[in-house]
């Protein structure tokens, strides 16, 4: 274990990984309660187009991913209004556009091998530049959630009720979708664009098995994400596996374990009629 941490690239991977492990499920809880889990998938596919564009233009890909995903996020929020009853439809349209653009741009990019690290995540390639952007933006995202906590909570419960309680619904929806897009763009480096949506949703799914309150759901989600990321990165280092996939599969294993334990508990609780 200590040997692993003597490598500076692993130190960086753990720092970035743990920041992501806090912010991804934190926003995930609100997103899933709004029944908009697909937004995570949509924005991450659009962010891939940003990465490819960055590579072609010679701009740091994470910056480009940030920019493009923020634009996409605002587009989604606008379309969600026009297709109110078909929220998934507007997301599918943007997802398709993003992925289409990404594949075209990847085929044009000079170093299309490099894009693999953004698709599946990489631990060896986390740079100091990544640290300098992930840490401050991660802190900002956490602060924004604290600042508007009960507003975001009410928005995920019911938008109309929230409006009638004086919550600035439109403003908070925009703030929320912006922090989602930031989280996704930041996570691409280590988890990968194809897998980040899973880190947003799987720990929350596990938490929902156990939590009895909204706050509890958030705390459990973060706990499970932190466990998944740290054990996933460790496995990935020792067995030379893709970090994103290892983290996600660890998360799924925890989910299955928790569901199994819950079922067992329920089974034991059953009265004995024999």
């Amino acid at each position: 274990m200590s040997e692993m941490l003597t490598y500076s690239f692993m130190q960086r991977a753990f720092i970035v990984g743990n920041v992501i492990a806090v912010i991804a499920p934190l926003i995930g809880v609100f997103l899933i309660m709004k029944r908009l889990a697909l937004i995570g998938n949509t924005i991450s596919h659009v962010a891939l187009a940003g990465v490819a564009l960055g590579m072609i233009l010679g701009i740091y890909p994470v910056y480009m991913a940030l920019l493009i995903s923020v634009i996409a996020a605002l587009g989604i929020e606008r379309m969600r209004k026009s297709y109110q009853d078909y929220a998934e439809l507007s997301l599918s349209i943007i997802l398709a556009t993003g992925l289409g653009m990404a594949t075209i741009l990847i085929s044009l990019a000079p170093n299309s091998a490099g894009i693999m690290s953004y698709l599946f995540g990489s631990i060896t390639l986390v740079t100091r530049q990544d640290l300098s952007i992930v840490i401050p933006l991660g802190i900002i995202i956490i602060l924004v959630v604290f600042k508007y906590y009960y507003g975001l909570f009410y928005l995920s419960f019911n938008e109309e009720d929230a409006r009638l309680s004086g919550i600035p619904v439109r403003f908070l929806n925009i703030v929320f979708i912006l922090i989602i897009s930031l989280t996704i763009a930041l996570s691409m480096r280590i988890i990968g664009g194809l897998l980040i949506a899973s880190l947003i949703s799987i720990p929350v799914a596990t938490a929902l098995q156990l939590a009895r309150s909204f706050k509890g759901t958030i705390i459990y989600s973060i706990f499970f994400a932190v466990v998944s990321v740290n054990s996933g990165l460790t496995f990935s280092f020792y067995y030379d596996l893709a970090p994103g996939g290892t983290i996600i599969i660890t998360g799924v294993a925890i989910l299955v374990l928790v569901i199994g334990l819950q079922k067992l508990k329920g089974y034991r609780k059953q009265p004995d009629f024999s």
Binding site: F153, F157, F214
Partner: peptide, 19 residues
Amino acid sequence: FNQSFPATVKELITAKLYQ
């Protein structure tokens, strides 16, 4: 409302005091 929304009675009532 979503009957499995993981909120307690207190959390829901607190949210109303946003302002």
